[in-house]
C-alpha cells in the first residue's frame, strides 16, 4: 500500500468510526432525560401547619435506619420564639424527635430557658431536611464522587464508596449531613428515594398529621407542590450561598435561615 493510500484509508476509517460513535452518544437515554427532564423532585413545607409533634422525625429515623437515640437526624424541627423586644430564642432538642411538650427551651450548655407568655410576640416551628440543591456543594466537594445528583434531582450518597472525610459535612450550609453512627459514612435525607421512585410518599410527609410536608414533581404543572411553588409566595433557606435549594417554605420568617 502506498503511503498516500494508507493516509486516505486511515482518514476515512477515523471519520467513519467517529460518525457511528457519535450515534451511540445520541441515543444515551440518560443524557436525553437530563436535557429534557420530566421529573424534578421538590419539597414543600407549610410552616403554618407544623405543630412540632416530631412524628416526621420519628418516622424518618425508623424508615431510614437511623438509631432513634443517636443524636443525629436526617430531618428535624426547629422552634422559634420571638420576643417583643426582638430577641429570638431557638431550640431543637434531639431534632424534636419526641416533639415539643414543654415551654422550656433547651439552650444546651446554658441550660433550660423559659420565656414568659407576655413577652412573646410570635412563636412557630420550622421543619428542616436536605434541600436537594440544584447546585449542591456536597457533590462539588466530594473527593471521590461518592455523593452524586440523580437525573431527577435527588442528591444521594454511595455508602460503599464514601471514604468518610467529612468534607461534604463541612461544605453543606444547611447542616443536614452527619456521619451515620453504624455505617460510618456520610449520611443525609434522600427524600426517601427508595419510596418515591416506586410511586410512594416520603416517610416524613406520610407521617405528618397536618399536611405540613409534601413531596412533588416540580416539572409537572398539575402537581400540587409545583402549583404552590409557582402560584404562591414561597421562600427558600440561605439562597445567598448559590446552592439553589429545592425545598420551598410557605411562611418563612427572616429569623429563619
Amino acid at each position: 500500500m502506498k503511503r498516500r493510500d494508507f493516509m486516505k484509508n486511515t482518514a476515512m476509517f477515523v471519520a467513519g468510526a467517529s460518525v457511528s460513535l457519535s450515534a451511540l452518544e445520541l441515543i444515551d437515554p440518560q443524557e436525553v432525560l437530563a436535557a429534557n427532564p420530566e421529573l424534578r423532585w421538590g419539597f414543600l413545607v407549610d410552616t403554618h401547619k407544623c405543630v412540632g409533634c416530631g412524628l416526621c422525625v420519628k418516622a424518618c429515623k425508623i424508615e431510614n435506619d437511623i438509631p432513634l437515640e443517636a443524636n443525629v437526624t436526617r430531618t428535624w424541627v426547629e422552634r422559634y420564639v420571638i420576643k417583643k423586644d426582638g430577641e429570638v430564642v431557638m431550640d431543637s432538642p434531639k431534632g424534636a424527635l419526641n416533639g415539643y411538650t414543654s415551654k422550656l427551651l433547651d439552650q444546651n450548655k446554658s441550660g433550660m430557658r423559659e420565656v414568659a407568655d407576655k413577652d412573646i410576640a410570635q412563636a412557630f416551628f420550622v421543619p428542616k431536611l436536605c434541600n436537594h440543591c440544584e447546585t449542591p456543594v456536597c457533590v462539588q466537594v466530594c473527593p471521590v464522587g461518592a455523593t452524586y445528583q440523580t437525573a431527577d434531582g435527588a442528591v444521594l450518597v454511595d455508602r460503599k464508596w464514601c471514604i468518610g472525610c467529612g468534607y461534604c459535612i463541612m461544605g453543606c450550609p444547611y447542616g443536614v449531613r452527619f456521619f451515620h453512627p453504624i455505617e460510618h459514612v456520610a449520611d443525609k435525607c434522600t427524600f426517601c428515594y427508595h419510596r418515591i421512585s416506586n410511586g410512594g410518599n416520603t416517610a416524613c410527609a406520610q407521617a405528618c398529621p397536618f399536611g405540613a410536608r409534601k413531596i412533588g414533581n416540580l416539572r409537572d404543572p398539575n402537581d400540587p407542590v409545583a402549583k404552590t411553588v409557582m402560584g404562591q409566595r414561597v421562600g427558600v433557606l440561605r439562597d445567598e450561598y448559590g446552592t439553589k435549594p429545592q425545598v420551598f417554605y410557605i411562611g418563612l420568617n427572616k429569623e429563619v435561615h
Binding site: 437526624t73 428535624w76 431557638m90 431543637s92 439552650q107 444546651n108 450548655k109 447542616g175 452527619f178
Partner: peptide
C-alpha cells in the same frame, strides 16, 4: 460541647 442554638447534626 454545644451551647445555645446549634443544629442537631452539627459537631
Amino acid at each position: 460541647l454545644k451551647d445555645l442554638f446549634v443544629l442537631p447534626n452539627e459537631y
